[in-house]
């Protein structure tokens, strides 16, 4: 059989029009149903009774405490993971050492473990009946049901984000530019600040945004170690659950809308930065 290519699409890769339309329709409708509609419903439910109740829920002292706590946890966890991610990515990409592939596998662990388990690990370790619990108790250190526990659980769950973002980028870039910098007389710190860091700036920023979004939105692991003490160890996602369970739908969705807003702001930030510095970073990898 002779296959004819329609003259309008003189291109071997061009698929028939119906297939193209079908593929586009499937992906667009999937995104609309699974992503856009739920997002819209969050805001409509939150504003179902108007602006005043919406603001009142958010201004509630427990809600404000939850917001403060969530910000606090993120402010501690994200920078720590930033440092860890950079170290791990640098070690993996620029050096050869024993156990390198094991390290890469371990970095992925939090992705493959259910967050609930991540939380349980800490309870088993530091809880009153955990391995280290009694010892810590003697020194008056409490981890479970405190902010410390929340921070630890959040770090555990979010640490792959930055490292995962940087490792492939740094591996692809190799170390020739660093070698060039050194042969031109740059020291270790100069090389890192002027060559390594700017080269991964994009990936790093993206990783930080993702890590931050996840740190603020984490539910499972945090839920296990939190103890749900209102005004004390309740983060925003936990607060949403409590409100929901109390049939305060407007309240639940109002607080949830804050998290949704965070996601949207993250997305906008990333796009803005890409748009503004796109030319400058055209040589580097983009997302």
């Amino acid at each position: 059989m002779i296959r004819r290519i329609s003259p309008a699409t003189l291109n071997v890769r061009s698929e028939p029009a119906w297939l193209r339309i079908l593929l586009i329709a499937v992906s667009v409708s999937f995104i609309v149903v699974m992503l856009v509609l739920p997002l819209i419903s969050v805001f409509t439910e939150a504003l179902a009774k108007g602006f005043a109740p919406y603001l009142a829920t958010i201004a509630d002292s427990d809600a404000l405490a939850a917001i403060r706590l969530t910000l606090l946890v993120a402010v501690i966890a994200v920078p720590l993971n930033l440092v860890f991610g950079l170290c791990a990515a640098w070690a993996v990409a620029k050096f050869d050492f024993r156990g390198k592939s094991l390290l890469i596998t371990l970095i992925d662990l939090p992705f493959s473990v259910s967050p609930v388990i991540s939380g349980l690990i800490y309870v088993l370790l530091f809880g009153a009946r955990g391995w280290l619990g009694p010892v810590l108790d003697e020194y008056g250190i409490k981890i479970i049901f405190t902010v410390t526990g929340l921070v630890l659980a959040t770090i555990f769950v979010t640490f792959p984000f930055i490292a995962r973002e940087l490792i492939p980028l740094m591996l692809e870039q190799g170390s020739e530019e660093e070698e060039a910098a050194i042969s031109l007389g740059a020291g270790g710190l100069q090389t890192f600040l002027r060559v390594t860091l700017p080269n991964v700036a994009w990936g790093l920023l993206y990783g930080v945004l993702l890590c931050n979004a996840r740190a603020m939105g984490e539910f499972g692991a945090v839920s296990v170690v939190s103890g749900h003490i209102r005004g004390k160890t309740n983060t925003v996602p936990l607060h949403v659950e409590i409100l929901y369970n109390e049939y305060d739908f407007v309240g639940a969705f109002a607080v949830a809308s804050l998290l949704a807003l965070l996601a949207l702001v993250t997305l906008v930030c990333k796009s803005l930065l890409e748009w503004k510095f796109g030319d400058r970073l055209a040589g580097g990898a983009k997302h």
């Binding site: 060039a180 007389g185 700017p198 080269n199 970073l281």
Partner: peptide, 20 residues
């Protein structure tokens, strides 16, 4: 003496220009 202090001009096969 480290590469840094050798005052050697090195031209890499794939140039290794600083991309940013």
């Amino acid at each position: 003496i480290s590469a840094r202090d050798r005052r050697v001009g090195f031209v890499f096969q794939h140039y290794a220009l600083f991309r940013h």
